[in-house]
Every structure is written in C-alpha cells, then in structure tokens.
C-alpha cells in the first residue's frame, strides 16, 4: 500500500514540477521583455557560461571525434568503406553527437552551477532581500542566466563540432593517410542544411532548457544546506533528461520538415 502511495506521490510531484516549470518558463517570457534589462549581468553570465565552459567542451569534443573515428574505422574497413568515414563522422557529429554531448556537458556544469548558486541565494534569503529592496530578482537572476545559456550553447556546439571533426581528421590523417583538405571537403560535401539547421536550432532549445531548469531548481530551493545540494543535483538530472526530450522533439519535427 505504501508502495502504491509512493508511486502516486511521485506522479503528483512530477505533474506539479511540470506545471511549476511551465509557469516558470511563462514568467521568464513575461519578464524577459520587461525593463529593466540587466545587460551587464547578462554579459557576465555569458562569460561565465560561454568562455568558462569552452575548454571543457573543446577537450570533450576532441576526444569524442578521436574515439568515434577509431571505433568506427575497423567496421568501415571491413566493408571497404573507409573513404566514407568523413561523411559518417561529419553527419553524426553535426547532426546529433556534437549538440547533445555539448548540452550534456553544459547541463552538468552550468545547470548544477546555477542551481547551487540560486539555491544558496534562496537559502541565505538574498533573493527575499532583493524582493524587499525593490529589485526584481527574477529579472536579474533568471532572465539573464537563461538568455545567456540560450545564446552561448549554440556557439559552444559549433566549437565542439569543429574540434571533434578536427580530432577525427587527425585520426584519418595518421591512420588512413587522408589529407585534411580531402577530409573536410568530404564532410561538407556530405552535409546539407537539413543536417545543419535543425542541429543549430535545437542547440538554442538545449541552452534554454539547461538555463531554465537550473534557475527553476535554484529559485525554488528548499531551506537548508541539503536543499542546495539537492537543487544542484536535481537540476543536472532534470536538465539532462529534458535535453534528450527536446532532442527527440527536434528530430521528430525536423523529420517532418526536411524528410531526413
């Protein structure tokens, strides 16, 4: 009986959180176009989320490119399709792996960071203090962060894609004696706007989801230090899950438009 009750509670919690998140995102859109615009805070957040995450994204992307090529090579060689490596890796990275891996890294780094930061502010009643002093905490804390993640993630994805392709090209250069020029020619020959545009558009949504979930979890953090930790942790889990959900939706919609 307790088991069923537990499931019921979880369902109710899930639905409540979904509703709260929807309300939170609605509030974001309302506040985003309402002055005052916290431009300096927005730029600071851009720097924190873009520049500070760049190295992590570059390293991860480079390794992903290397590993994907090294793992795929034996199979492609077995089929005598080694020359198709740039096409396969290029499409895989640009269409799916680059955006998703970058989004997951950012979900781990940014969402948890935002969750912890805003959670601490909530626990230490800084947010309450801002409300009392007449400053709009939502505008200052949430809108700037969500907009920063929304705009920075596509740029990070581009950097990640290119460094992953470079890593793959390095493997092909040293193991397959394929020149960089031929590699990148083959990649761009294989790619089309049907691959590039949906991937870029969904990167904006990934960034939006990561920022929104991080802010939501931190903004509604429960009191106590445990609440901060829980907010950071659940922000990562929820952001990662939503990234995959958005990815599924994006593939579904782009399939309709581009007939992939």
């Amino acid at each position: 009986m307790d088991y069923l009750e537990n499931i019921w509670v979880r369902i109710i919690t899930f639905l409540r959180e979904t509703g709260e998140l929807a309300e939170f995102s609605g509030r974001f859109f309302r506040e985003a176009f309402r002055p005052p615009f916290e431009f300096r805070e927005f730029l600071r957040q851009c720097y924190q989320m873009g520049n500070r995450s760049l190295m992590l994204v570059l390293i991860t992307g480079f390794i992903i490119g290397l590993v994907l090529t090294l793992q795929s090579r034996p199979t492609l060689i077995e089929f005598g399709a080694e020359s198709w490596m740039p096409n396969m890796v290029g499409i895989s990275i640009v269409r799916e792996i680059g955006p998703v891996i970058t989004a997951l890294i950012c979900a781990g780094r940014i969402a948890s960071g935002i969750g912890a930061e805003l959670g601490s502010m909530r626990v230490t009643e800084q947010i309450d203090a801002m409300e009392v002093s007449g400053t709009n905490p939502f505008n200052y804390l949430v809108v700037t962060r969500v907009m920063a993640t929304t705009l920075m993630l596509p740029l990070l994805v581009i950097f990640g894609d290119l460094i992953a392709l470079y890593g793959s090209a390095l493997v092909e250069y040293f193991k397959g004696a394929m020149s960089f020029r031929l590699y990148f020619n083959s990649v761009f020959d294989a790619l089309s706007f049907g691959d590039f545009i949906p991937a870029t558009v969904k990167s904006f949504f990934f960034g939006f989801v990561i920022g929104l979930v991080g802010c939501y979890k931190g903004y509604y953090c429960k009191k106590g230090t445990a609440g901060v930790g829980k907010a950071a942790n659940s922000a990562v889990v929820m952001a990662s899950l939503l990234v995959f959900f958005v990815d599924f939706m994006a593939v579904f919609i782009s399939d309709i438009f581009y007939e992939l």
Binding site: N51, L155, I158
Partner: peptide
Amino acid sequence: QYVRLGFFVIAGSLLLLAMAYLIGNDQNI
C-alpha cells in the same frame, strides 16, 4: 573578461556562418 567574451562570441558566430557558407556553397546556394 568582456574582451574574451567578445572574442568568443565573434569567433563562434564567424564559425557558424563559415559552416553555413561551406554547406550552402556545396549546394550552389
């Protein structure tokens, strides 16, 4: 930090445009 952010944004935007151009050029756009 602003300079680094500006560099990051410009470089990222240029790469985005270059990628779009290379793909589009291949398709005679």
